[in-house]
Protein backbone atom coordinates (compact mmCIF):
# COMPACT_ATOMS: atom_id res chain seq x y z
CA UNK A 1 0.00 0.00 0.00
CA UNK A 2 1.45 3.34 -1.02
CA UNK A 3 1.85 5.74 1.84
CA UNK A 4 0.89 8.67 -0.38
CA UNK A 5 -2.51 7.23 -1.21
CA UNK A 6 -3.66 7.28 2.37
CA UNK A 7 -5.02 10.33 4.14
CA UNK A 8 -2.79 11.56 6.90
CA UNK A 9 -3.10 9.72 10.18
CA UNK A 10 -3.79 12.38 12.74
CA UNK A 11 -3.55 12.20 16.49
CA UNK A 12 -7.32 12.56 16.62
CA UNK A 13 -7.80 9.50 14.45
CA UNK A 14 -5.49 7.44 16.63
CA UNK A 15 -7.26 8.55 19.78
CA UNK A 16 -10.64 7.70 18.29
CA UNK A 17 -9.27 4.32 17.29
CA UNK A 18 -7.87 3.72 20.76
CA UNK A 19 -11.18 4.64 22.37
CA UNK A 20 -12.98 2.44 19.87
CA UNK A 21 -10.73 -0.51 20.64
CA UNK A 22 -11.07 -0.03 24.39
CA UNK A 23 -14.83 0.36 24.26
CA UNK A 24 -15.57 -2.34 21.72
CA UNK A 25 -13.16 -4.92 23.02
CA UNK A 26 -14.05 -4.51 26.67
CA UNK A 27 -17.73 -4.69 25.74
CA UNK A 28 -17.07 -7.78 23.65
CA UNK A 29 -14.92 -9.25 26.39
CA UNK A 30 -17.81 -8.84 28.78
CA UNK A 31 -20.27 -10.11 26.24
CA UNK A 32 -17.91 -12.99 25.56
CA UNK A 33 -18.61 -14.39 29.00
CA UNK A 34 -22.29 -14.50 28.12
CA UNK A 35 -21.58 -16.13 24.75
CA UNK A 36 -19.30 -18.65 26.40
CA UNK A 37 -21.87 -19.63 28.99
CA UNK A 38 -24.58 -19.86 26.37
CA UNK A 39 -22.57 -21.92 23.88
CA UNK A 40 -21.24 -24.27 26.54
CA UNK A 41 -24.78 -24.69 27.83
CA UNK A 42 -26.17 -25.49 24.39
CA UNK A 43 -23.43 -28.02 23.80
CA UNK A 44 -24.41 -29.74 27.02
CA UNK A 45 -28.10 -29.43 26.13
CA UNK A 46 -28.74 -26.84 28.80
CA UNK A 47 -30.29 -23.42 28.45
CA UNK A 48 -27.64 -21.26 30.07
CA UNK A 49 -28.39 -17.81 31.50
CA UNK A 50 -32.04 -17.20 30.87
CA UNK A 51 -33.67 -14.91 33.36
CA UNK A 52 -31.96 -11.51 33.19
CA UNK A 53 -33.40 -9.80 30.17
CA UNK A 54 -34.57 -11.52 26.99
CA UNK A 55 -32.63 -14.79 26.57
CA UNK A 56 -30.47 -13.68 29.49
CA UNK A 57 -28.85 -10.99 27.37
CA UNK A 58 -28.51 -8.62 30.30
CA UNK A 59 -26.69 -11.23 32.37
CA UNK A 60 -23.43 -9.37 31.77
CA UNK A 61 -24.87 -6.28 33.44
CA UNK A 62 -25.98 -8.32 36.42
CA UNK A 63 -22.53 -9.90 36.64
CA UNK A 64 -20.93 -6.48 36.34
CA UNK A 65 -23.01 -5.07 39.17
CA UNK A 66 -22.15 -8.06 41.28
CA UNK A 67 -18.44 -7.79 40.60
CA UNK A 68 -18.32 -4.04 41.17
CA UNK A 69 -20.19 -4.10 44.43
CA UNK A 70 -18.48 -7.11 45.90
CA UNK A 71 -16.16 -6.62 48.82
CA UNK A 72 -12.56 -6.22 47.76
CA UNK A 73 -10.70 -8.64 49.99
CA UNK A 74 -6.95 -8.49 50.38
CA UNK A 75 -5.79 -11.48 52.40
CA UNK A 76 -3.88 -10.98 55.60
CA UNK A 77 -0.34 -12.02 54.78
CA UNK A 78 -0.42 -10.99 51.15
CA UNK A 79 1.89 -8.41 49.70
CA UNK A 80 -0.76 -5.75 49.35
CA UNK A 81 0.74 -3.54 46.65
CA UNK A 82 1.68 -6.31 44.25
CA UNK A 83 -1.55 -8.14 44.99
CA UNK A 84 -3.50 -5.04 44.00
CA UNK A 85 -1.45 -4.26 40.89
CA UNK A 86 -1.36 -7.76 39.38
CA UNK A 87 -4.91 -7.79 37.86
CA UNK A 88 -4.26 -4.43 36.26
CA UNK A 89 -1.18 -5.87 34.55
CA UNK A 90 -3.23 -8.61 32.93
CA UNK A 91 -5.92 -6.23 31.70
CA UNK A 92 -3.46 -3.53 30.60
CA UNK A 93 -1.13 -5.80 28.64
CA UNK A 94 -4.08 -7.41 26.91
CA UNK A 95 -5.31 -4.01 25.71
CA UNK A 96 -1.83 -2.70 24.85
CA UNK A 97 -1.35 -5.76 22.68
CA UNK A 98 -4.52 -4.81 20.83
CA UNK A 99 -3.00 -1.41 19.99
CA UNK A 100 -0.86 -2.98 17.26
CA UNK A 101 -3.58 -5.24 15.90
CA UNK A 102 -5.78 -4.21 12.97
CA UNK A 103 -9.28 -4.70 14.23
CA UNK A 104 -11.33 -2.93 11.56
CA UNK A 105 -10.41 -1.59 8.10
CA UNK A 106 -9.49 2.07 7.67
CA UNK A 107 -12.43 4.42 7.46
CA UNK A 108 -13.08 8.13 7.39
CA UNK A 109 -15.78 9.53 9.62
CA UNK A 110 -18.45 11.07 7.35
CA UNK A 111 -18.46 14.87 7.06
CA UNK A 112 -22.01 15.30 8.37
CA UNK A 113 -21.08 14.21 11.87
CA UNK A 114 -20.29 17.30 13.94
CA UNK A 115 -16.86 17.80 15.53
CA UNK A 116 -15.46 14.46 14.48
CA UNK A 117 -16.40 14.67 10.79
CA UNK A 118 -13.67 14.04 8.25
CA UNK A 119 -11.18 12.47 10.62
CA UNK A 120 -9.40 9.48 9.15
CA UNK A 121 -9.40 6.53 11.51
CA UNK A 122 -6.61 4.05 10.75
CA UNK A 123 -7.06 0.31 10.98
CA UNK A 124 -4.35 0.06 13.60
CA UNK A 125 -3.97 2.41 16.53
CA UNK A 126 -0.22 2.35 16.14
CA UNK A 127 1.25 0.70 13.07
CA UNK A 128 4.58 -0.39 14.51
CA UNK A 129 6.38 -2.08 11.68
CA UNK A 130 7.10 -5.02 13.96
CA UNK A 131 3.44 -5.47 14.85
CA UNK A 132 3.43 -9.23 15.26
CA UNK A 133 6.47 -9.26 17.49
CA UNK A 134 4.99 -6.41 19.52
CA UNK A 135 1.78 -8.32 20.12
CA UNK A 136 3.66 -11.47 21.06
CA UNK A 137 5.93 -9.48 23.35
CA UNK A 138 3.00 -7.80 25.05
CA UNK A 139 1.25 -11.10 25.54
CA UNK A 140 4.50 -12.40 26.98
CA UNK A 141 4.53 -9.47 29.39
CA UNK A 142 0.98 -10.45 30.27
CA UNK A 143 2.33 -13.44 32.11
CA UNK A 144 3.25 -11.12 34.97
CA UNK A 145 -0.39 -10.73 35.92
CA UNK A 146 -0.92 -14.35 36.96
CA UNK A 147 2.68 -14.71 38.09
CA UNK A 148 2.73 -11.82 40.52
CA UNK A 149 -0.84 -12.50 41.61
CA UNK A 150 0.09 -16.01 42.63
CA UNK A 151 3.27 -14.98 44.38
CA UNK A 152 1.79 -12.00 46.21
CA UNK A 153 -0.92 -13.99 47.98
CA UNK A 154 0.40 -16.08 50.80
CA UNK A 155 -1.31 -19.14 49.44
CA UNK A 156 0.16 -22.40 48.21
CA UNK A 157 -2.43 -22.78 45.47
CA UNK A 158 -1.46 -19.35 44.23
CA UNK A 159 2.22 -20.28 44.13
CA UNK A 160 1.40 -23.47 42.24
CA UNK A 161 -0.73 -21.47 39.84
CA UNK A 162 1.99 -18.97 39.15
CA UNK A 163 4.59 -21.71 38.76
CA UNK A 164 2.37 -23.25 36.14
CA UNK A 165 1.93 -19.84 34.53
CA UNK A 166 5.67 -19.42 34.24
CA UNK A 167 6.36 -22.80 32.66
CA UNK A 168 3.33 -22.76 30.40
CA UNK A 169 3.77 -19.25 29.03
CA UNK A 170 7.54 -19.56 28.64
CA UNK A 171 7.28 -22.85 26.81
CA UNK A 172 4.47 -21.94 24.50
CA UNK A 173 5.91 -18.54 23.59
CA UNK A 174 8.61 -20.52 21.80
CA UNK A 175 6.03 -22.44 19.80
CA UNK A 176 4.01 -19.31 19.01
CA UNK A 177 7.09 -17.51 17.77
CA UNK A 178 8.39 -20.41 15.71
CA UNK A 179 5.00 -21.23 14.20
CA UNK A 180 4.40 -17.67 13.09
CA UNK A 181 7.95 -17.40 11.74
CA UNK A 182 7.11 -19.36 8.60
CA UNK A 183 4.33 -16.96 7.51
CA UNK A 184 6.62 -14.04 8.37
CA UNK A 185 9.25 -15.53 6.05
CA UNK A 186 6.70 -15.86 3.26
CA UNK A 187 5.38 -12.32 3.58
CA UNK A 188 8.73 -10.79 4.42
CA UNK A 189 7.39 -8.32 6.92
CA UNK A 190 6.40 -8.10 10.54
CA UNK A 191 3.59 -5.63 9.96
CA UNK A 192 -0.01 -6.76 10.13
CA UNK A 193 -0.96 -4.45 7.28
CA UNK A 194 1.55 -6.16 5.01
CA UNK A 195 0.12 -9.50 6.04
CA UNK A 196 -3.33 -8.34 5.19
CA UNK A 197 -2.32 -6.90 1.84
CA UNK A 198 0.33 -9.49 1.02
CA UNK A 199 -2.04 -12.08 -0.33
CA UNK A 200 -4.52 -9.71 -1.81
CA UNK A 201 -3.36 -10.43 -5.34
CA UNK A 202 -3.75 -14.14 -5.82
CA UNK A 203 -6.59 -14.31 -3.32
CA UNK A 204 -5.41 -17.40 -1.49
CA UNK A 205 -5.34 -17.33 2.27
CA UNK A 206 -2.05 -18.09 3.97
CA UNK A 207 -3.56 -21.14 5.64
CA UNK A 208 -3.40 -22.86 2.25
CA UNK A 209 0.37 -22.47 2.21
CA UNK A 210 0.98 -22.93 5.92
CA UNK A 211 -1.58 -25.35 7.40
CA UNK A 212 0.93 -26.77 9.88
CA UNK A 213 1.88 -23.33 11.12
CA UNK A 214 -1.80 -22.49 11.54
CA UNK A 215 -2.48 -25.55 13.68
CA UNK A 216 0.64 -24.95 15.75
CA UNK A 217 -0.27 -21.32 16.25
CA UNK A 218 -3.77 -22.24 17.37
CA UNK A 219 -2.49 -24.80 19.88
CA UNK A 220 0.10 -22.41 21.27
CA UNK A 221 -2.43 -19.60 21.29
CA UNK A 222 -4.82 -21.67 23.37
CA UNK A 223 -2.01 -22.37 25.80
CA UNK A 224 -1.09 -18.71 26.03
CA UNK A 225 -4.63 -17.58 26.61
CA UNK A 226 -5.13 -20.28 29.22
CA UNK A 227 -7.99 -22.00 27.44
CA UNK A 228 -9.05 -25.62 27.77
CA UNK A 229 -7.29 -28.09 26.89
CA UNK A 230 -4.46 -26.13 28.50
CA UNK A 231 -6.24 -24.36 31.35
CA UNK A 232 -3.85 -25.60 33.98
CA UNK A 233 -3.23 -22.20 35.51
CA UNK A 234 -6.49 -22.17 37.36
CA UNK A 235 -7.66 -25.72 37.14
CA UNK A 236 -10.21 -26.18 39.91
CA UNK A 237 -9.82 -29.88 40.47
CA UNK A 238 -6.12 -29.63 41.17
CA UNK A 239 -5.24 -26.20 42.48
CA UNK A 240 -8.58 -24.61 43.49
CA UNK A 241 -8.30 -21.58 41.25
CA UNK A 242 -4.55 -21.23 40.95
CA UNK A 243 -3.47 -17.64 40.92
CA UNK A 244 -7.00 -16.25 41.37
CA UNK A 245 -7.72 -18.25 44.52
CA UNK A 246 -7.67 -15.22 46.82
CA UNK A 247 -9.16 -12.69 44.44
CA UNK A 248 -12.68 -11.36 44.59
CA UNK A 249 -14.82 -8.68 43.07
CA UNK A 250 -13.48 -6.32 40.48
CA UNK A 251 -9.88 -7.50 40.67
CA UNK A 252 -11.01 -10.97 39.71
CA UNK A 253 -13.09 -9.39 36.97
CA UNK A 254 -10.04 -7.67 35.55
CA UNK A 255 -8.29 -11.02 35.16
CA UNK A 256 -11.36 -12.20 33.35
CA UNK A 257 -11.50 -9.23 30.99
CA UNK A 258 -7.79 -9.62 30.27
CA UNK A 259 -8.26 -13.27 29.43
CA UNK A 260 -11.11 -12.55 27.04
CA UNK A 261 -9.24 -9.67 25.41
CA UNK A 262 -6.34 -12.05 24.87
CA UNK A 263 -8.69 -14.56 23.30
CA UNK A 264 -9.84 -11.88 20.88
CA UNK A 265 -6.25 -10.90 20.15
CA UNK A 266 -5.37 -14.48 19.27
CA UNK A 267 -8.49 -14.63 17.13
CA UNK A 268 -7.52 -11.42 15.31
CA UNK A 269 -3.95 -12.56 14.72
CA UNK A 270 -5.11 -15.91 13.39
CA UNK A 271 -7.65 -14.25 11.09
CA UNK A 272 -5.28 -11.58 9.78
CA UNK A 273 -2.19 -13.75 9.37
CA UNK A 274 -3.70 -17.03 8.23
CA UNK A 275 -7.26 -16.40 7.13
CA UNK A 276 -6.92 -13.47 4.79
CA UNK A 277 -7.60 -10.58 7.15
CA UNK A 278 -10.10 -7.88 6.32
CA UNK A 279 -10.03 -8.23 2.57
CA UNK A 280 -13.27 -8.34 0.66
CA UNK A 281 -14.33 -11.85 -0.14
CA UNK A 282 -16.52 -12.34 -3.20
CA UNK A 283 -19.42 -9.97 -2.43
CA UNK A 284 -18.97 -9.87 1.33
CA UNK A 285 -17.35 -6.64 2.51
CA UNK A 286 -14.11 -6.80 4.45
CA UNK A 287 -15.40 -5.59 7.78
CA UNK A 288 -18.02 -8.32 7.80
CA UNK A 289 -15.41 -10.92 6.87
CA UNK A 290 -13.07 -9.99 9.70
CA UNK A 291 -15.90 -9.97 12.22
CA UNK A 292 -17.03 -13.35 10.95
CA UNK A 293 -13.54 -14.76 11.16
CA UNK A 294 -12.89 -13.45 14.65
CA UNK A 295 -16.29 -14.71 15.76
CA UNK A 296 -15.49 -18.13 14.36
CA UNK A 297 -12.12 -18.24 16.12
CA UNK A 298 -13.85 -17.25 19.34
CA UNK A 299 -16.52 -19.89 18.83
CA UNK A 300 -13.83 -22.47 18.12
CA UNK A 301 -12.29 -21.79 21.53
CA UNK A 302 -15.64 -22.37 23.23
CA UNK A 303 -16.30 -25.41 21.08
CA UNK A 304 -12.98 -26.93 22.01
CA UNK A 305 -13.65 -26.17 25.66
CA UNK A 306 -16.93 -28.04 25.49
CA UNK A 307 -15.43 -31.01 23.69
CA UNK A 308 -11.98 -31.86 24.92
CA UNK A 309 -10.61 -32.76 28.31
CA UNK A 310 -7.58 -30.86 29.49
CA UNK A 311 -4.10 -32.31 29.69
CA UNK A 312 -1.85 -32.98 32.63
CA UNK A 313 1.01 -30.54 33.28
CA UNK A 314 3.64 -33.08 32.28
CA UNK A 315 1.72 -33.85 29.11
CA UNK A 316 1.62 -30.13 28.43
CA UNK A 317 5.41 -29.88 28.62
CA UNK A 318 5.83 -33.09 26.68
CA UNK A 319 3.56 -31.77 23.94
CA UNK A 320 5.39 -28.46 23.78
CA UNK A 321 9.01 -29.54 23.76
CA UNK A 322 8.87 -32.96 22.17
CA UNK A 323 6.15 -32.49 19.57
CA UNK A 324 5.20 -28.92 18.77
CA UNK A 325 8.62 -27.31 18.85
CA UNK A 326 10.33 -29.86 16.59
CA UNK A 327 7.40 -29.72 14.19
CA UNK A 328 7.57 -25.93 14.17
CA UNK A 329 11.31 -25.96 13.48
CA UNK A 330 10.89 -28.48 10.68
CA UNK A 331 8.12 -26.34 9.24
CA UNK A 332 10.36 -23.28 9.27
CA UNK A 333 13.21 -25.19 7.63
CA UNK A 334 10.96 -26.61 4.91
CA UNK A 335 9.47 -23.19 4.25
CA UNK A 336 12.97 -21.77 3.93
CA UNK A 337 14.06 -24.50 1.51
CA UNK A 338 10.96 -24.08 -0.64
CA UNK A 339 11.42 -20.32 -0.75
CA UNK A 340 15.08 -20.61 -1.72
CA UNK A 341 14.56 -23.18 -4.47
Amino acid sequence: MEATMLPEVTAGGVIIKAVLILAVISAIAGFGTYIERKVLAFMQRRLGPQHVGPYGLLQIIADGIKLFTKEDIIPQHANKLVFAVAPAITAATAFIALAAVPVFPDFTIPEWIPVLGGIFVPSIASDVNVGILFVLGMMAAGLYGPLLAGMAQANKWGILGSARTAIQFLSYEVVTGLSILAPIMMVGSLSFVDFNDGYNDNGLWLIVYQPVAFVLFLIAGYAETNRTPFDLLEHEAEIISGYVTEYSGMRWGMFFIGEYANMITIGVIASVVFLGGYNDFWIIPGWLMIIGKIAFMFFLMLWVRASWPHVRPDQLMWLCWKVLMPVAVINVVITGIVMMV
Binding site: L136, A140, A141, L143, Y144, F169, L170, E173
Partner: peptide, 8 residues
Protein backbone atom coordinates in the same frame (compact mmCIF):
# COMPACT_ATOMS: atom_id res chain seq x y z
CA UNK B 1 13.91 -6.35 24.71
CA UNK B 2 10.28 -6.99 25.65
CA UNK B 3 10.21 -10.60 24.55
CA UNK B 4 13.64 -11.65 25.78
CA UNK B 5 14.07 -9.75 29.01
CA UNK B 6 10.51 -9.32 30.16
CA UNK B 7 9.03 -12.47 28.69
CA UNK B 8 11.84 -14.94 29.22
Amino acid sequence: QLIVYVGA
